[in-house]
């Protein structure tokens, strides 16, 4: 029995904004199936009382002083922009959408 179907890979690829060809979807479905089967071995381990380990360091978040430092210049900020206009980055027309999180 397969753990993952091509349609699910398609849904995930859309969520990750990753255009994949049908051939890529097909291949990736098979590869992911094998990888997920292997990964499922962790499910056998009892981790009931174990705290998740989110960080390898054991100290608290360091804090910096609220002191502004010089910005990048507008040119430095924009020097790698694939498209720009004046001091702005340019993107295709934005139709207000659910993109905004908040």
């Amino acid at each position: 029995m397969s753990r993952i179907q091509p349609d699910e890979v398609r849904t995930i690829a859309a969520l990750a904004r990753l255009r994949l060809s049908d051939a890529e979807i097909e291949r990736m479905t098979h590869e992911l199936d094998a990888i997920l089967e292997y990964i499922d071995t962790v499910k056998n381990l009892d981790t009931g009382a174990t705290e998740p380990m989110t960080h390898a360091v054991r100290f608290d978040c360091p804090l910096r002083q609220d002191e502004p430092k010089p910005s990048l210049s507008v040119e430095e900020a924009l020097q790698n922009a694939p498209r720009r206009r004046d001091s702005f980055f340019e993107v295709p027309r934005i139709v207000p959408s659910t993109g905004e999180g908040g």
């Binding site: 690829a13 859309a14 904004r17 990753l18 255009r19 790698n80 922009a81 694939p82 498209r83 980055f89 993107v91 295709p92 027309r93 934005i94 139709v95 959408s97 993109g99």
Partner: peptide
């Protein structure tokens, strides 16, 4: 994502296309 640096697809008529 092709907005601030790096590769950007040649043709994108929407944001959706720009990204994917």
């Amino acid at each position: 994502d092709g907005v601030r640096y790096g590769h950007r697809t040649a043709e994108a008529s929407s944001l959706e296309e720009l990204y994917s």
